[in-house]
């Protein structure tokens, strides 16, 4: 800036084109604002450096243009007016490169997000279909519950198994089957208390952990879930006709010296019994 003053001399007031001053001045100011916001909103890095350098070079070009309005250059220093527009395209090119890197950065950020999802899927903590946590997570929670058990408190478990899920899948496709499981998951969540935890066990089976609960209460809750599922008028896909579902439930209460594996085995055994009695009921 000082350099430009040194090269030229101030124009007389009447020669200044105020319209140009306004236009070029505001662009210069805007670029300054851009630089400011870029600096505060982006983390440091290649993309940010490139963006700011590009903007700064643009700023230089604009500033020279702006000063033009006030300063008259002598013949020998007239070169400065010819090169003043040169930095602008360089700045633009740098910003374009920055934009390209930005795009790459964003893509890799997206990929990282997907990886995060995968990460959870890999370690099977969340279940993709239902959005619930998976059996692995439940097992950790049961172990935690077993370890923190006190004399006063006890906990119970519920296992739920969708009846004829295979037949439904066969009739309405797997996509509808997945949707159905998601709806059941939501219904189960609606029917349990805030302190309870519902997870997808495997396939069409769910498992619920009820802390500080005796089997009696667990049975009541299991019953409520069964009731609410049997009342769901589920309409697969575009079909206007409702399909009603039944869900089998069984429960068990923690007993001393049980561990996670024993508890889950108990539930599996109970479920097997429930299934057998259901089959005999159908036959009879």
């Amino acid at each position: 800036m000082i350099f430009t003053f040194f090269l030229g001399e101030l124009k007389p007031i009447n020669l200044i084109d105020w319209f140009d001053v306004l236009g070029e001045g505001s662009i210069t100011l805007m670029i300054l604002i851009w630089i400011f916001f870029t600096m505060i909103s982006r983390p440091k890095g290649k993309v940010t450096h490139l963006l700011i350098s590009g903007l700064a070079i643009m700023q230089l070009s604009m500033l020279l243009d702006f000063l033009d309005e006030f300063i008259h250059y002598s013949q020998s220093s007239a070169w400065i007016t010819t090169i003043e527009s040169l930095p602008a395209p360089i700045g633009m090119i740098m910003m374009t490169i920055a934009l390209y890197y930005w795009h790459q950065e964003q893509t890799s950020l997206n990929a990282q997000l997907i990886k995060k999802e995968r990460y959870f899927r890999e370690h099977s903590l969340t279940d993709y279909i239902t959005g619930l946590y998976s059996a692995e997570y439940m097992k950790n929670q049961i172990t935690r519950e077993v370890n923190s058990i006190t004399n006063k408190s006890n906990f119970s478990m519920i296992m739920l198994d969708v009846c004829n899920f295979d037949a439904f899948n066969r009739k309405f496709s797997d996509i509808q089957g997945d949707k159905l499981l998601r709806e059941f998951a939501n219904l189960i969540l609606m029917n349990i208390r805030d302190k309870d935890l519902a997870c997808r066990f495997a396939s069409d089976r769910f498992i619920v952990l009820l802390p500080d609960t005796h089997q009696k209460t667990a049975n009541i809750i299991a019953n409520q879930i069964q009731l609410s599922i049997s009342h769901l008028a589920h309409k697969p896909g575009q079909s206007p006709e409702a399909v009603y579902h039944q869900i089998l439930a069984c429960s068990c209460e923690y007993q001393e010296s049980d561990d996670c594996e024993i508890l889950i085995n108990k539930l599996n055994q109970e479920m097997l019994k429930a299934k057998l009695s259901q089959i005999t009921k159908l036959v009879a």
């Binding site: 059996a135 495997a202 089976r205 599996n268």
Partner: peptide, 13 residues
Amino acid sequence: PDHIEEYQVNLGP
């Protein structure tokens, strides 16, 4: 395997 529950549900006890 870790996913033993799949065996329990799909194949039985």
